[in-house]
Structures are given as C-alpha cells and as structure tokens.
Amino acid sequence: MNDQIESTRWERLSFALLHVWVLGVCFVVIGAFLVQFVGRELPCPLCLLQRMAMLLAAMGPMFIIRRAMSVDSRPAADFSTGFGMSILASVLGLAISGRQTLLHILPGDPGYGGAVFGLHLYTWAFIVFIVVILVSGLTLSAGSMMVVGTRGGRPAAWSRITGGVLGVVIAGNVVSALFESGTDWFLPDNPTNYQLIEEFREFLETRSSAVDPSGQKAN
C-alpha cells in the first residue's frame, strides 16, 4: 500500500516536471523575443535554428502529457518516445549552439549581439541543451518510478495552459521569421532589418513613383 502511494507521488512529480520543462523552454524563447523586440537585436540564422531545436525539445514532454490523457495510451512506450524526441532535438541544438559559440571564441571577439547576465544567448542555449539532455537521462534512468500513467478524460487546466503557451510561442516565431526573411529564401548572416517591411515599403514607393506629380497615372 505504501509503495503504491509512493509511486503515485513520483508520478505526480514527474507529470509536474514535464509541465515545468515545457514552460521553461517557452520562458527561454520568450526571453529571446524580449532581446529581439525590446533590445532591438535581430536574431541571426543560427539563433533561429537554436529556437527551432529548443521548441522541438519541448515537443517530447508535450507528447507525454498529451498521450497520458489518451484512451489508448501506452505509458512506458510514450514516456521513452517523448524523452527520445527531446534528446534528439537537444543534440541537434547542442551542435548548432556549439558551432556559434566556437565562431566567437577567439580572444577579442565581441560575439554576436549583447550579453544577458554575462553570457551571450547562444552560450545560454548551449547550457539549456546540456541541462535538457541531463534531465532526460536522469528521468529515463529512474523510469520505473517516474513513468507517467494513464490519466483519462479532459486535460487539466494547467496542461491546457502549458500547451496554449507553447502554441503561442511557436506561432510568434512563424510570424517573426516571416517578417525577418521577407520573400528571400534564406536570412543574411547579420540581419539588420525586417525584410518584409522593407519590401512592402519599396513596393509602396514604386507604386507612388508610377504616379506623376499631376496625379495622373503614367502609361
């Protein structure tokens, strides 16, 4: 009986940890948004790739949370699939942030963008990916205790809020990336403006120059 109560406690802790994980990743990406909009620093292509890897790393816990509510949930299989997803995305993110860190590692190099608490965003991203891999490894090691069982019915309010926040953060990135790249296929290495706004401005100027000063349209 005591073992059963203990196991339920671990299960609850594990389920809460999954929510904290998703919200933690959202918090980091929202921080990057603040640097982008408040600090007026446009993200470079590698920064956007790190955001993608970070959001993909949050898909694993989101997958486990959602599957736990499903009628055909397979707790152990879904648990390992979710953490596998997170580890894969984090390894990719580690490679991307590691490369950007190495690009600016020489003494005297000011790095890309401003520093937050003494470290650049790509260095923070490197730390976040290492933490995600460590937490995934530790949780999988304690799999028998931490595996989240089936919780049928509608998702709880905090699960829906967590999912909603993640959805809004991803949608925000879609809009931001679209404004930054405009109609170009790829971003420049050091973006200085929102390409879509520039293109729209140029389009308006072209239209107005096509109209002569007397107000009549040119042939």
């Binding site: 898909m59 599957r67 959805g167 991803i170 949608a171 879609v174 790249s181 405009g182 296929w185």
Partner: peptide
C-alpha cells in the same frame, strides 16, 4: 522563407500532438 516554413512544420507537429495523432506527430 525557409525558416518560416520550418516553424510552420513545428507548429503542425504541435497541433498533431494536441490532437493525439501519434503517428503523424
């Protein structure tokens, strides 16, 4: 455009997870 497209695919992944479509997600 490529970056925005990838974010859209990530959004689609998220939506399919929310709809509990295991294989598609």
């Amino acid at each position: 455009m490529v970056a925005a497209f990838i974010f859209i695919v990530i959004l689609a992944t998220f939506v399919s997870i929310r709809r509990d479509q295991r294989r598609r997600s």
